[in-house]
């Protein structure tokens, strides 16, 4: 646990529910969040965004929030838990972003991790490729979907899930081992409306930064990445490998100094990090 920021108002005016008006009032972003929908419950906010994407650019910038998700997805279809009003779950629909999928993944991770750090006393990092972590526990995740429309690619749905107001008791024993929340880390509840606005503002900021100079996103991402120099266990093509992470490239993958000898690059699309740190 860390001390609360003295000068911060991050948990002031605590609002229990997501509120379109409060989110909007705190938005500086021009495109993301241009339209906001809040669902009491839905299968997954990404699914709703997919529906709205059908109408095309008229829904550019739409942000869909849900208090609860019944079948939120993580990477590779892993189920993402969407707890009753305690998580911040949303998806942003963006058309014609002149950035590659990998870059948008980095941008999203950096924007989210940084927003949480600016909003609350919680210092989080990025676990390659798209988990938001505190220590070795997962605080949130990002699921990016890209689609083409009218023959044009570079359209994205950025899905974000962050554990906000869960206490230890809200997690099953099994989950508690691997998950945490802003409340658990800071000892205080947080108002998801303010965090939502901050996240969306940050997302736009980092998207612009990536267009202007991709290098600054890479640098920031590397700083926030938590695997470098750690002992990592991962699975690649259904085989397990253990080694020290000696290099990390958000696009190319992870370089491990394998314990059984040799150095190997593990491609991002075929690799899952199973554990890291104290194995």
């Amino acid at each position: 646990m860390q001390g609360a920021k003295g000068d911060s108002d991050w948990n002031r005016n605590l609002c229990k529910f997501l509120d379109v008006d409060i989110i909007k009032a705190n938005l500086d972003a021009k495109l993301p969040g241009r339209k906001i929908l809040v669902y009491k419950s839905t299968s997954s906010t990404n699914d709703v965004a997919v529906e709205y994407a059908k109408a095309g650019k008229i829904n550019n910038g739409l942000a869909v929030f849900a208090e609860r998700q019944s079948s939120g997805r993580g990477r590779r279809g892993n189920k993402w838990l969407g707890g009753d009003g305690k998580s911040l779950l949303f998806s942003v629909l963006l058309f014609d972003i002149a950035l590659a999928l990998e870059m948008v993944t980095l941008v999203s991770a950096v924007a989210v991790a940084q927003a949480i750090g600016e909003f609350s006393p919680v210092r989080c990092g990025i676990k390659w490729p798209n988990d938001i972590i505190v220590g070795t526990k997962k605080l949130g995740g990002i699921l990016l979907e890209s689609f083409s429309q009218n023959g044009k690619g570079n359209n994205y749905i950025i899905g974000v899930g962050i554990n906000c107001c869960q206490s230890q008791a809200d997690f099953d024993e099994e989950i508690a081992e691997i998950a945490t929340s802003i409340k658990i880390e800071s000892g205080q509840n947080c108002d998801r409306n303010f965090l939502a606005a901050k996240l969306i503002n940050n997302l736009e900021k980092w998207l612009e930064a990536a267009k202007a100079d991709p290098q600054q996103v890479l640098v920031r991402w590397q700083q926030m990445s938590r695997l470098l120099g750690r002992r990592v266990r991962l699975e690649c093509d259904r085989k397990e490998f253990v080694g020290i992470c000696t290099g990390i490239d958000p696009v190319e993958g992870l370089v491990l100094q394998l314990e059984r000898g040799g150095v190997r690059l593990f491609n991002a699309s075929h690799t899952t990090v199973i554990a890291y740190g104290n194995l």
């Binding site: 997501l18 509120d19 379109v20 008006d21 809040v38 669902y39 009491k40 419950s41 839905t42």
Partner: peptide, 14 residues
């Protein structure tokens, strides 16, 4: 089965 949405107080309810 979700049959419709009722929007109330700016919240979409499936």
């Amino acid at each position: 089965t979700v049959v419709c949405i009722v929007e109330a107080m700016k919240v979409m309810n499936e």
